[in-house]
Computed example of a mutant assay.
Amino acid sequence: MDDIDSAIVRELQRDARQTNRDLARALGIAPSTCLERVRSLRQRGVITGYRATVDLKALNRPVQALLSVRIRPMSREVIEGFKAYAIGLPEVLNVYVVAGGDDFLVHVAVPEVNHLHTVLMDRFSGRREVVDFRSSVIYQHVSKDVVEPLAP
């Protein structure tokens, strides 16, 4: 990644809907150069896709929580099975396999706290591999719109 690649990635993270011509103009490069660079970034796996950011409240999901989950037995098969199960639930936004005291962090978004309780009781507590879970309601969260590369 050189400075131009980094600038392209930064600009596309800010606004992926801009035209190639607008992107090239913002970076001060030729549109053909810009298009080739974007294609290269996609081929190299730096740019993995384009998404629309949505308002969870508008989707009737104003309550968010992080679920800390421990599973047993610890095996690749059990980890992969639980990961696939969790991400398949409609309330789940993200699943993280983590090290430390917990095995997973599961990010959920639901309409209300009672729905969160139902998810915990009906979808997690009955799973044979789940030995423990805790929930932490998220009051606020912020995320970076632009992720910059770090120096090696």
Results as ranks from 00 to 15, higher is better:
P73C: 05
R76I: 06
V92I: 10
N94T: 10
Q64C: 14
R70A: 10
M74H: 14
E77V: 04
R72G: 05
D55P: 12
R72A: 12
F82W: 05
L59S: 13
V92F: 08
A65L: 11
V78D: 03
R61H: 12
V63D: 07
M74C: 01
I71Q: 02
L56N: 11
P73H: 01
P62R: 10
M74N: 09
Y85W: 03
S75K: 05
A58Y: 08
D55K: 15
L67A: 13
D55G: 13
I87E: 08
V69M: 10
N94A: 11
R72Y: 09
L56M: 15
A86I: 02
G81Y: 00
P90Y: 07
P73I: 00
I87W: 06
A84L: 06
V69C: 11
K83I: 01
P90S: 09
L67K: 07
V69T: 11
P90C: 09
D55L: 15
R70V: 12
I71D: 06
Q64I: 09
L56F: 12
L89S: 08
S75T: 07
V78M: 06
K57N: 15
F82N: 03
E80M: 06
A84F: 00
S68H: 14
A86E: 04
P90K: 08
A65V: 13
A58S: 15
N60T: 12
V95I: 10
R70N: 11
L89V: 00
R76H: 08
L93Y: 07
N94P: 00
G81M: 00
K57C: 13
A84T: 08
V63S: 08
V78Y: 01
L59F: 15
N94Q: 14
A58D: 14
L59D: 12
V95N: 05
V69R: 05
A84G: 01
I71Y: 04
R61P: 13
A84W: 02
N60E: 15
A84N: 07
L93W: 08
L93A: 11
A58C: 11
V63W: 05
A58P: 09
E91N: 06
R61K: 15
Q64V: 11
Y96G: 09
I87D: 00
L89Y: 00
P62S: 13
Y96I: 07
L67I: 15
R70Q: 11
I79N: 03
R72T: 10
A86D: 02
K83T: 07
L56Y: 09
Y85C: 02
L59T: 11
V95K: 03
Y96M: 11
V92D: 07
F82P: 03
I79V: 14
A58T: 13
E91M: 07
L56W: 06
R76W: 04
L56H: 09
V78F: 02
R70F: 06
K83M: 06
R72L: 10
V78I: 09
S75D: 00
G81N: 02
I87C: 00
Y85T: 03
L59A: 14
V78P: 04
L93N: 12
E80A: 09
L56P: 10
R76N: 08
S75F: 00
P90A: 08
R70I: 11
V95T: 04
G88M: 05
V78L: 03
V92G: 06
P62M: 10
L89I: 07
Y96V: 06
V78K: 00
L93R: 13
P90R: 09
P62A: 12
R76A: 10
L89R: 06
I87H: 03
N94V: 10
Y85R: 05
